[in-house]
Design a protein around this nucleic acid. Structure first.
Length: 421
RNA sequence: GGAAGCGUGGCAGAGUGGUCGAAUGCACCUGUCUUGAAAACAGGAGUCUGGGCAACCGGACCGUGAGUUCGAAUCUCACCGCUUCCGCCA
């Protein structure tokens, strides 16, 4: 959600945002509704003032007949007030529907482009691992080492179902522990957050109304969140924080659920695209300045880089193009790790900032140094998604000629062994 | 799942149809006093929003949404949440 004042003052900026994000939204239609809203509001307030003034006379009028007359004379006014109120409600409904579709303005540094193919590499680290043998993909490797069971997974859980087994489980727990310690040392507070959330939380974070089809919904009209960001961000909804409490740095653990509607043909084998996985997510609330947002955006990105470098994984970072940005995102980096079997980088992390897009919807404010209430800024980045992204990456990159998996040095204390399988 | 009670400002807590945007206490801010602080005393202070250069003048907000009424924090209904009791349960 953006400030309607900002939209009114900068309609061309919003129009350009619509264009850059490859959306279809009629900014002028919204401005028209806003004009209608203002007019209806003004009419209502005029009528209400009149009603309030005359109503106040009633208790002061002691003469019974006069009093009855006054009450009688107010009846038609009541109807007018009610009609005006009704009018506002109708307009506001439309107003809200439109406001939920207004995209946040991408940063000037965001490249033009329609989809992820036009994301622009901005950094690359490490080198492609060299194998002097035929590399296998994670499915083959893991099945051979009895670390995953897809057949029983689909039997029990349906399409994209899986059981993670044995050493893969050790690897997953090791990753959680290692990554968690890494960011706790940097001042992040660890949380285990709900996955089952109300629709309010999803509207607040911007996953509704647009993302409805990718969400699982319960018979109670709640939803299963696709990321811990939803609950973690909503944690402070309707609160006023002290400026001294900022930034809030959280790392949220949660199961994540995604219907993957519209991706039926993609990554049908393996762990990369599954309906249910686990994620540690970095969430930051900071003061409302672009500089702060940028600062923490770089910080949550650096946190992940440090992990990948410690693990020894070859990766690059892309700046997502306009068409690959979410409605509320100002800028996003995708961090992608090299997958030897696919001979390309695959997204493992996604770092974005929103300015006050989410906090406005969630009503998260803070009192600044002057005592003024302001909407905080929010941003987030994956810390680690498992098993979906990082398990395949590690398995493939650390495969040995004998089919076993060498455990990255830093994980060995947590895994308790040098080789998987 | 059944029954009862409750939901008011940062917190506590009055208010059961008419200057109630809301008493009072605590916390907070500003003065007076004090070498300084505390205490005491006096005063101030909610959020959002429309108009105005401003002083200021309107409107909305007492869990949410409908309704009754000339007028609702106060009455009715629904929903949400909390508490207690009973039932059920992986």
């Amino acid at each position: 959600m953006l400030d309607i004042k900002f939209i009114k003052e900068n309609p061309d900026l919003i129009k350009d945002a619509v264009r850059k994000k490859h959306l279809s939204f009629d900014v002028d239609a919204l401005l028209l509704v806003e004009e209608k809203r203002k007019a209806a509001q003004a009419l209502f307030e005029t009528l209400r003032t009149e009603q309030n003034t005359l109503s106040d006379e009633i208790p002061k009028t002691t003469d019974g007949a006069k009093r009855a007359e006054l009450i009688e004379s107010l009846k038609p006014l009541k109807e007018k007030v009610q009609a005006a109120e009704e009018d506002i409600k109708t307009i506001m409904k439309e107003w809200h529907t439109l406001m939920l579709q207004v995209p946040n303005v991408p940063d000037v540094s965001v490249p033009e482009g329609a989809n992820d193919e036009e994301n622009v590499e901005c950094k690359i680290w490490g080198e492609q691992p060299m194998f002097d043998f035929e590399v296998n993909d994670h499915v083959e490797l893991m099945e051979k080492l009895d670390m995953v069971d897809f057949d029983r997974g689909t039997k029990v859980a349906g399409f994209r179902g899986y059981f993670l087994k044995n050493d893969a489980v050790l690897l997953q727990f090791a990753l959680w522990q290692y990554c968690m310690q890494h960011v706790i040392a940097k001042g992040f507070s660890p949380f285990v957050v709900p996955s089952l959330v109300t629709k309010h939380s999803l509207y607040g974070t911007g996953y509704l109304p647009q993302g409805e089809e990718d969400l699982y919904k319960t018979q109670d009209d709640d939803y299963l969140a696709g990321t811990g960001e939803v609950a973690m961000m909503s944690y402070h909804s309707d609160e006023v924080l002290a400026v001294g409490d900022l930034p809030k740095k959280y790392v949220a653990f949660s199961p994540c659920f995604r219907r993957e509607a519209g991706s039926h043909g993609k990554d049908v084998k393996g762990l990369i695209r599954v309906h249910e996985f686990y994620k540690l997510e970095q969430v930051v609330l900071c003061e409302a300045s672009h500089e702060m947002s940028v600062k923490y955006h770089e910080e949550v990105t650096a946190n992940v880089e440090e992990l990948l470098q410690a693990l020894g994984l070859h990766y690059h970072i892309v700046t997502n193009c306009g068409g690959d940005l979410g409605l509320g995102q100002v800028k996003k980096y995708d961090i992608e790790v090299w997958m030897p079997s696919q001979k390309k980088f695959r997204e493992t992390h996604s770092a974005s900032y929103f300015h006050d897009f989410q906090t406005r919807r969630l009503n998260i404010r803070y009192k600044d140094a002057e005592g003024k209430l302001r909407y905080a800024h929010s941003l987030n980045n994956t810390l680690i998604a498992t098993p979906s992204r990082m398990i395949p990456a590690i398995i493939e990159n650390f495969q040995q000629p004998d089919g076993r998996i060498k455990v990255p040095e830093v994980l060995r204390p947590y895994v308790g062994k040098e080789y998987l399988g």
